[in-house]
C-alpha cells in the first residue's frame, strides 16, 4: 500500500513537471515518442486455455522477457458471448491508449451475427496481424478411424444425432469449419459449444465428444502423448511445416481446394487513438514478431507467419469479413 501511495505521489509530481514542460516547449513534447503511462490492458476475446488465450499470454511473456514496454501488458479474458463482451469493451474505450485486443475470427462473425452490438470493425485501429492459425480434424486415438474416409463412414453409421462434434461458440470458427465438413461430405453432426478450445480438446480425450476441429496448439500435447489423432488439415498444400506438415491436407486427399480455413491472429486498438500510440504498439509487436521465441513458437504450434499492418491490414479485415458474411449466410446464421 505504502509503495503504491509513494509511486502514486511520484507520478503526480512527474505529471505536474511534465505539464510545466509541455507549456514551456509545446512543440518538443508533441513530437516525443509515446510510451504507456500505466499497465496496458491486453484484452483477449476468448476464454482461458484456448489457442487465443495461450498465444496472448505467450506474447505477454515475450514482452516482459525482452522488456519491450516500460509498463506491463496485462492479459484480460473477455470471452463472453463469442467475444461480444470484448468487442463492446473496445468500442466503449474509444480513444483509450492503454487498451489493445488480441483478435480471432469472431472479430468478423460476432458483429455480423449481433448487429445490436453496434460494432464496426473498420473503425478500430489496426496494429498488426502476426500469423494465421490452422485447423485439423481430430478424433480420439482409441477409435479405429484412420482416414477421412473412415471418418465419414463412422459418422454415417452412428447417425448424426449420436455424433458429437465439439467446438467453441455457435457461429464461431469451429462451427463454420464443421459446417464445411457437413456440406462437403453430406453428413450431419450434433454440435456442442464449449467456452474455449482447451476445454474442447480435453472433452475429446475424455471421450465425451466424438471429434473436434481444434487448432494445433490445443491438441499438440495430446497428439504427442498418443491420445488423439489428426485426420486432415484445412490448409493448402505445403503451407504447414514440421510435424504438422506431415498431416495430409483435404486438398491433397482430393476433396478440393476450397476445404481451407484459417484463424487470423491479430492485434487491434480502439478507434480514435493517436498516431504516436499506434506507432508504439506496432514497434512493440514488430520486436515480438522478430524474436527467436516467436519464430520457434510458430513452427512448433503449426502457425503460418504473416506480418501485416496499417491500411493493408484493414483491407484484409474487410475482405475476410465479407467472406465470413457469405459463410454465415450459407449456414443460415444471418440473413
Amino acid at each position: 500500500m505504502k509503495a503504491l501511495w509513494k509511486s502514486g505521489a511520484a507520478w503526480l509530481c512527474l505529471a505536474f513537471l511534465l505539464g510545466l514542460a509541455a507549456t514551456a516547449v509545446p512543440q518538443l513534447s508533441a513530437q516525443a515518442a509515446w510510451e504507456p503511462k500505466k499497465p496496458v490492458e491486453f484484452v483477449i476475446m476468448a476464454g482461458k486455455g484456448g489457442g487465443a488465450d495461450r498465444l496472448a499470454r505467450f506474447i505477454q511473456g515475450i514482452i516482459e522477457k525482452h522488456k519491450l514496454s516500460s509498463k506491463p501488458f496485462v492479459p484480460i479474458n473477455k470471452g463472453g458471448g463469442s467475444g461480444a463482451e470484448a468487442l463492446r469493451y473496445l468500442k466503449d474505450n474509444k480513444g483509450n491508449p492503454h487498451v489493445i485486443m488480441a483478435t480471432l475470427n469472431s472479430y468478423y462473425t460476432t458483429p455480423l451475427r449481433q448487429p445490436g452490438l453496434g460494432v464496426d470493425i473498420e473503425k478500430f485501429t489496426p496494429i498488426t496481424r502476426l500469423a494465421e492459425d490452422t485447423f485439423q480434424l481430430w478424433v480420439h486415438s482409441d477409435t479405429n478411424i484412420n482416414s477421412v474416409d473412415d471418418y465419414v463412414k463412422a459418422v454415417k453409421a452412428a447417425g448424426g444425432a449420436n455424433w458429437k462434434m465439439g467446438g467453441t461458440g455457435k457461429g464461431q470458427e469451429d462451427s463454420l469449419v464443421t459446417g464445411m465438413l457437413e456440406k462437403k461430405f453430406g453428413i450431419k453432426v450434433t454440435y456442442v459449444p464449449f467456452k474455449g478450445g482447451g476445454t474442447v480438446a480435453k472433452q475429446l480425450i475424455g471421450k465425451h465428444l466424438n471429434s473436434t476441429v481444434n487448432n494445433p496448439s490445443e491438441q499438440a500435447g495430446f497428439w504427442e502423448a498418443g491420445k488423439s489423432r489428426p485426420l486432415a488439415s484445412f490448409t493448402p498444400k505445403g503451407k504447414l511445416k514440421g510435424r504438422f506438415g506431415k498431416i495430409p491436407t483435404f486438398e491433397e486427399l482430393g476433396y478440393g481446394a476450397e476445404m481451407v480455413y484459417y484463424m487470423q491472429r491479430s492485434v487491434i486498438a480502439p478507434e480514435g487513438i493517436d498516431k504516436n500510440v499506434q506507432a508504439f504498439y506496432v514497434s512493440v509487436f514488430d520486436k515480438v514478431y522478430k524474436s527467436k521465441e516467436w519464430q520457434d513458437y510458430l513452427g512448433k504450434k503449426g502457425l503460418i507467419p504473416g506480418w501485416l499492418t496499417g491500411g493493408e491490414l484493414t483491407r484484409y479485415f474487410v475482405k475476410e469479413r465479407e467472406a465470413h458474411r457469405a459463410m454465415l449466410k450459407a449456414a443460415g446464421e444471418i440473413k
Binding site: G80, G81, S82, A84, E85, T110, R113, Q114, G116, G169, K170, G171, P193, K195
Partner: peptide, 10 residues
Amino acid sequence: VGLDIVSGEP
C-alpha cells in the same frame, strides 16, 4: 445476467 453462453445474446 450477462451474455448467453450458447448464443452470445445479452
